[in-house]
C-alpha cells in the first residue's frame, strides 16, 4: 500500500503545478528571517516596516485588527520591540472620538495604547471617494489573504512599470506586473528614498518593500514566533514519545510474532 502514498504525493504536485498557470510572472524568491521552522522576526526590520506603514500606507490603508498596545511588550507575541513609553507616545499622536461623557456628548481625546490603530477613513464611502472609487483593503491580514503572502506584497510594491503599448488603461489606473489583471487603482506608493529610516538603513525601494512586507507578515500573525517555538517543543516531545511507544510495542508483540 506504499503506492497509495506515492500517488497522493503525485496528485499534490500536479495541483500545485496547475495553480501557477496564470499570466502574472512568478514571484521573486525572497525569504525573511521569520520563514522556516525556527524562523523569528527581525525586530529592526519590523520597526522600519511600521515606519513605512505610518508614513505612507496609513494615508489610505487601515490596520483594523491591531491596537497600539500590540506593538509593545504586552502585545500578542511580544510586539515589534517598542517599549511601553514608545507605544504610549505613539498612541497619543492620534485623536480619538470617545464618549458620551456625563453631559451626553462625544469628545475628542488623545489615543491610548488600548485603542485600535487610527484608520484613515471613517467608512468605506469616504475611502472610495478619496481613491477614485477604489477601496484600499485593510492590511492587517493581507499577507494571509493573498496567494504568495509576503512575497506577493514585496513584488507588488516593486511591480510598477509602463504598460505595454497595446494595453488600454482605465482612468487613474496603474500598470503592475504582479496584480491580477495588471490594472491597479493604487498609485505606486514606494520608491527609492521614499522614507528616511531612523536607524540609517539604506532606503532603496527593495529595502522598503522588504521591510513593509515583514511588518505586514507580523501584523497578520503576531503570534508566529510563539507558534514556531511551541512547535519545536511539541515535536521533540512527540518524537521521544513515538520512540518510547515503538520500543514498548516491539516488546509487547515479541511473543506474538
Amino acid at each position: 500500500m506504499r503506492k497509495f502514498a506515492l500517488a497522493l504525493a503525485g496528485a499534490a504536485a500536479l495541483t500545485v503545478g496547475a495553480a501557477q498557470a496564470a499570466d502574472e510572472p512568478s514571484l521573486p524568491k525572497v525569504t525573511w528571517p521569520n520563514d522556516g521552522v525556527f524562523g523569528t522576526f527581525d525586530r529592526a526590520s519590523l520597526q522600519r516596516g511600521f515606519q513605512i506603514y505610518k508614513e505612507v500606507c496609513s494615508n489610505c490603508h487601515a490596520l483594523q485588527h491591531l491596537h497600539y498596545r500590540d506593538l509593545g511588550p504586552g502585545g500578542p507575541g511580544g510586539g515589534i520591540g517598542f517599549t511601553d513609553e514608545e507605544v504610549k507616545a505613539l498612541a497619543e499622536q492620534a485623536q480619538v472620538t470617545d464618549g458620551p461623557n456625563d453631559q451626553g456628548e462625544m469628545f475628542q481625546r488623545p489615543g491610548r495604547p488600548y485603542d485600535p490603530i487610527a484608520r484613515p477613513f471613517p467608512n468605506e464611502q469616504a475611502a472610495r471617494a478619496a481613491n477614485n472609487g477604489a477601496l484600499p483593503p485593510d492590511l492587517s491580514l493581507i499577507t494571509k489573504a493573498r496567494e504568495g503572502g509576503a512575497r506577493y506584497v514585496f513584488a507588488l510594491l516593486q511591480g510598477y512599470t509602463d504598460p505595454p503599448p497595446d494595453m488600454k488603461m482605465g482612468t487613474g489606473m496603474n500598470y503592475n506586473l504582479y496584480f491580477p489583471g495588471h490594472q491597479i487603482a493604487m498609485p505606486q506608493p514606494l520608491s527609492d528614498g521614499q522614507v528616511t529610516f531612523s536607524d540609517g538603513t539604506p532606503n532603496t525601494l527593495t529595502q522598503e518593500a522588504y521591510d513593509i512586507a515583514a511588518f505586514l507578515t507580523w501584523a497578520a500573525e503576531p503570534t508566529l514566533e510563539v507558534r514556531h517555538r511551541m512547535g519545536t517543543k511539541v515535536f521533540l516531545f512527540l518524537l521521544v514519545l513515538t520512540g518510547l511507544f515503538y520500543v514498548v510495542k516491539r516488546k509487547v508483540w515479541a511473543e506474538v510474532h
Binding site: R227, T242, F245, K249
Partner: peptide
Amino acid sequence: VKDLFGLCVFLLVYAAFVFYAPNLLGDPA
C-alpha cells in the same frame, strides 16, 4: 500499544501542519 504508537506518528504529521503550515490547506480568500 499499537494504536498509541500509530497515534504518535499521526500527531507528528498533524503538529507539522498546526505549527509550521497552518494555512497551507486553506484558501487565502
